[in-house]
């Protein structure tokens, strides 16, 4: 009887061990698949064209050459692209961090009836396809003479964006109302409460939003494609996309261009991982 019980325990231990190692193997296998395309990109970018096409397949570039990167940087006005990118990614951070906390404060901490109505509308606007407003908005900016400039892409950020207001609201809701009430009794204006009390308490969510805005503008393709005609205004990732031409067979250059537009984001991710993941899980209401 007891022996049988012991055997059962050993059997279940073996089973546990097996399932543990099976889990590890699965993880390794899928990690390998997921990392492979990225590795393929880095690898090809460091090769000569001949090596990239060599058979049997060359897995490690040997020797490592930077020709492709040099080509990419000489073919375009690289410094200009970097400057454009910084401008295009940093201005909207200012815009969003100006408008969204203000609106979120109105929705959560000022007791008025409109707050709920506005929040409902904000949720609703997130479902409206961007193509619906695309043409009229374009024609507004065209009539104002602002096409081929950043204005149509940057100015709207100063009027808030549904998604970031939502993130901000989710966070501000958790701040205790008693602080605002106490400050009001002491005669502080709402602006003062927002800027001296609430803002400092929202540091984490502000950084999260800043990271998300930076990413979104770094990645932006559609907006730039719609409004910019002049290649001297391109950002890094949009400018790099112009290298796409499979007929030219310049795969090493194309991979160098992709690496150039990806690597800074990966570096940013390693420094700000917490904020990336924070933003994602807040969105789903699981925070």
């Amino acid at each position: 009887m007891s022996k049988k019980g012991e055997m059962n325990v050993t059997a279940s231990l073996v089973k546990q061990k097996a399932s543990y190692w099976f889990g590890v193997l699965e993880l390794l296998f899928f990690s390998f698949i997921f990392i492979m395309p990225l590795y393929w990109m880095f690898r090809t970018a460091l090769m000569t064209v001949n090596q990239a096409f060599a058979r049997p397949t060359v897995w490690f570039p040997n020797p490592i050459v930077m020709d492709a990167y040099e080509e990419v940087m000489w073919k375009v006005d690289f410094g200009k692209y970097v400057w454009n990118t910084l401008f295009y990614c940093l201005v909207p951070i200012v815009g969003v961090l100006f408008s969204c906390p203000m609106v979120a404060y109105s929705l959560t901490k000022i007791p008025w009836k409109g707050g709920n109505v506005i929040f409902t509308i904000i949720l609703f606007t997130m479902m409206i396809p961007w193509t619906v407003t695309m043409i009229p908005v374009y024609s507004i900016w065209a009539n104002l003479g602002f096409t081929n400039s950043y204005v149509p892409l940057l100015l709207p950020t100063f009027f808030g964006s549904a998604y970031y207001i939502y993130l901000m609201r989710q966070y501000m809701k958790s701040l205790p109302d008693s602080i605002m009430e106490a400050a009001r009794i002491d005669g502080a204006s709402e602006f003062r409460i927002l800027y001296t009390i609430v803002y400092p308490m929202c540091k984490t969510v502000c950084v999260t939003i800043a990271v998300l805005v930076f990413m979104a503008h770094w990645n932006d393709y559609t907006g730039l494609m719609l409004y910019l005609k002049d290649s001297s205004k391109y950002t890094l990732s949009y400018g790099m996309a112009q290298f796409g031409d499979p007929q030219a067979n310049q795969w090493t250059e194309m991979m160098a261009a992709s690496t150039v537009s990806t690597a800074p984001l990966i570096v940013l991710f390693f420094f700000a991982q917490k904020y990336f993941l924070n933003g994602i899980s807040t969105t789903s209401g699981l925070k």
Binding site: S31, F34, M41, M240, M254, S258, T262, F276
Partner: peptide, 19 residues
């Protein structure tokens, strides 16, 4: 590792997958 691919900008990703 599983999250890294989402960081690749859509345009760069298209170039990468062409290859």
């Amino acid at each position: 590792i599983f999250y890294l691919p989402t960081l690749v900008p859509a345009a760069a990703c298209a170039l990468l997958f062409l290859w």
